[in-house]
Design a protein around this nucleic acid. Structure first.
Ligand SMILES: [Mn+2]
Ligand SMILES: [Mn+2]
Ligand SMILES: [Zn+2]
Ligand SMILES: [Zn+2]
Lengths: 137, 137
DNA sequence: TCCATATTTGTAATCATTACAAGAATGAAA
DNA sequence: TTTCATTCTTGTAATGATTACAAATATGGA
C-alpha cells in the first residue's frame, strides 16, 4: 500500500482529499489519462469535485516533479505517474497510449547545439497490436 | 525558384491561389508555424482569406504527405515543410521551435512489440541558446 | 476559538480547432 | 459559349480543452 500522503508531503504539497485521490488514481491506472478522464472517474467518489481542481492539481504535481505531462498528438495533455525516461506510442485507431520501454539509447546531454535541455520525449504513432488483430479478421 | 504549382499537382491537389500561397509560406519560413501564424501573415496578401481555408489546406497537405504535423507541447499543431526525420526542440522561454538534425540513431523498425509504427517524433524542451544568453546578462 | 492562508468550487472566458451551409470558382460536356 | 456538376473558399457557429477569476470552504497554528 503506497503512502500517498507521505509522497505529497515529501513534495511540499498539502495532502487534501482531492490531491490524495488524484495521485492514487494516477498511480493505479497507468493509462496516461487526461484531466477530463480523471475528473469523470473521481467525481463518482467525490461528487463535489470540480474540474478546475483536477487541472490545478495536475499542474501543481507536474511543477513539483511528481508527474510528467505528455503532449502526444491530438491536442490533449496526458499525465504519467512514471517520471522515468520511456517511450510513448499512441494508437490512431483506439486512442490508447502504451509505454514502450525499449532500451533505446537516449540523450544524456544537458546541452545540445548550445540549447539547454530540460525534457526529452520520444513519441510514436501507429496501430496497436490489438487493433491490428481486429483488422485482420 | 520552386514550382509550387507542380508540387501541388504531383500530390493530386488542385493549385488554388490560397494553396499555392500557403505552401510557398511554409517552404520559405521554416519556423514551424501554427495555422494561426500562417493566417495572420497571408491575410495581408489575400484579404479575403478565411482561417477555415488555412486549416483545411494544412489538413489536406498533411494527408497527402506534403507536410508533417507536429504536436510539440502546449496544445498547438505546428507544420513542417521538411518531412525528413529530424528532431525538434521548443524553447519554453521564447516559444520558438528549432530543428536539431543531430545524427541521432532512430527507429527503423516498422513494428515494435507488435505495434505498427507510422510516425516517429523526438521532441525536446528547454531553454534556447539565445534565451540563455539574455539570462546570463 | 480565531484568523490568516491555502484550497476548492463554479462560472465565465479564452484559445485552437472543427462543423456546416452558403457562395464563388473551375473546368469539362454539350 | 452556355450549362452544370464538382470542387474550393468563406463566414459563422459550435466544440473541446484549458485557464482566469472570485467567492466559498477548509485547514492548521497562535
Ligand atoms: Mn508512460
Ligand atoms: Mn522541423
Ligand atoms: Zn489500438
Ligand atoms: Zn528561447
Amino acid at each position: 500500500m503506497i503512502d500517498f500522503v507521505r509522497i505529497l508531503i515529501e513534495h511540499n504539497i498539502a495532502p487534501s482529499i482531492q490531491r490524495i485521490k488524484i495521485l492514487e488514481y494516477l498511480s493505479k491506472y497507468k493509462t496516461h489519462p487526461t484531466a477530463d478522464m480523471i475528473y469523470r472517474e473521481l467525481v463518482k467518489q467525490i461528487p463535489t469535485l470540480s474540474k478546475t481542481t483536477v487541472y490545478n492539481t495536475l499542474k501543481t504535481f507536474t511543477e513539483k516533479g511528481l508527474l510528467t505531462a505528455l503532449a502526444i498528438f491530438d491536442n490533449e495533455i496526458r499525465y504519467d505517474f512514471n517520471t522515468d525516461q520511456h517511450i510513448h506510442f499512441k494508437c490512431s485507431k483506439c486512442g490508447l497510449v502504451f509505454d514502450l520501454d525499449g532500451s533505446h539509447d537516449t540523450f544524456n546531454e544537458d546541452f545540445i547545439e548550445g540549447h539547454k535541455i530540460t525534457e526529452y520525449h520520444i513519441n510514436l504513432k501507429g496501430i496497436c497490436k490489438n487493433c491490428l488483430k481486429k483488422e485482420s479478421k
